[in-house]
Simulated assay, not measured.
Amino acid sequence: MKPMIKWTAMALAVCLPLSAQAHRAWMLPSATVLSGEDPWITVDAAVSNDLFYFEHFPLRLQGIGQLDQAPAGGPPGMRPRPAAQLQVIAPDGSQVQPENGSIGRYRSTFDVHLTEKGTYKLAIANSGLVARWKENGETRRWMGNPDAFAKEVPAKAEDLQVSQNSSRMEVFATSGAPTKTVLEPTGKGLELSPVTHPNDLYAGEAAEFVFLLDGKPAADVEISVIPGGNRYRDDLGEINAKTDAQGKVSITWPDAGMYWLEAELTSDKGVSKPATERRASYSATLEVLPQ
């Protein structure tokens, strides 16, 4: 029996290696630094080749739009599948419900009402096992949880490779003065622990970030930073960096605008059977303001 490939848009992006990832999953806020008495942000969520351009398919989020059916005219073979769990965390640490959600052909959209002063975090976390093997000369792929692995992946599959994957996608937005409550790490997977506040970034200035793996400094993490709008330029404009022994990295922003940051780490440490390697990734959309 041929196994069904179980992917969400987020899971698909997680499983692609950073160097070859043509499709990138992202959230794009209308603004990240706000003032006034009644601020809102609108957030687009999508998977695309170009940043931040809608041309592939929407990032499907629980509670956003009609998730019981695939978008009309979607990619061939696209079927209803589990959606990613979005968390919106207020400055006091409480959960906030996104509003006015909808899902379209190329993007999902929702609003967040910033009723408190301080920094909000929008986060999507995903984890599971990814398996690849040969069957009748063809490559088969599967993703799911450890309980389903034994039932759905052949025990003696040819050339079986199993990896333990985790990912996190984040956006930060601040009403008034920045706060730090939502910046506290969860201690799970690869996370950003900012030295420079993510809503205090300026063109021409260096920002310092620390990356943690399960709450501990993550050394030698590959970092890729790409400014949005690459559809309209010949040069991707990618900035490459790597964390030091303390998990720290410094990035100098060449221009103002929206940037997509991705960090990726592959290791054989902290791996649980049946996996033989661990792959952790982190991504964020960051707004860099002019001086």
Rank of each mutant, 00 (worst) to 15 (best):
S250F: 01
S94P: 05
L16A: 15
K269N: 13
Y106C: 11
F149A: 14
D38E: 11
G270F: 00
R233D: 01
E55F: 03
S94T: 07
V96A: 04
S193G: 06
S35H: 06
L213T: 00
F149S: 08
I223C: 07
K180E: 15
G93T: 03
V162G: 08
Q97R: 15
V271P: 14
V130A: 15
D50N: 05
P290K: 02
T174W: 05
I103L: 14
M27T: 03
E264C: 03
K134F: 07
P98F: 04
A275I: 02
P254Y: 02
S281K: 09
R231V: 05
E135G: 04
P178H: 06
A263V: 00
F149P: 14
A125I: 10
T32Q: 14
E264V: 07
Q95V: 08
K117T: 14
P82D: 10
R132T: 05
S108F: 02
P178C: 09
G77Q: 15
S48F: 00
T252G: 02
M258C: 09
E99V: 12
T119K: 11
K117Y: 00
Y282M: 01
P198C: 03
A284S: 14
G36C: 03
W40I: 01
A123F: 02
L12D: 13
R132Y: 00
A218N: 07
E37K: 11
P91Q: 02
W133D: 11
V112P: 08
P82W: 05
S166R: 08
N49W: 08
Y259G: 15
R79W: 05
Y282V: 04
K269I: 13
G93C: 01
S35N: 14
Q164A: 02
N49M: 14
M169V: 06
M27F: 04
L86S: 03
D234F: 13
S166N: 11
W26Q: 04
P71R: 10
L265R: 10
A131T: 10
T285L: 13
P71F: 04
G228H: 02
I5S: 11
S175F: 07
A275E: 07
S19T: 05
L236T: 04
A22T: 15
A284L: 12
A150C: 07
Q69I: 08
R60Q: 12
L16R: 15
L28Q: 05
R60L: 11
P82C: 11
G228M: 04
L183W: 06
L114A: 09
G187H: 12
L51V: 05
A20K: 06
W40Y: 09
E152F: 12
E238P: 13
G237I: 03
Q21Y: 01
W133P: 14
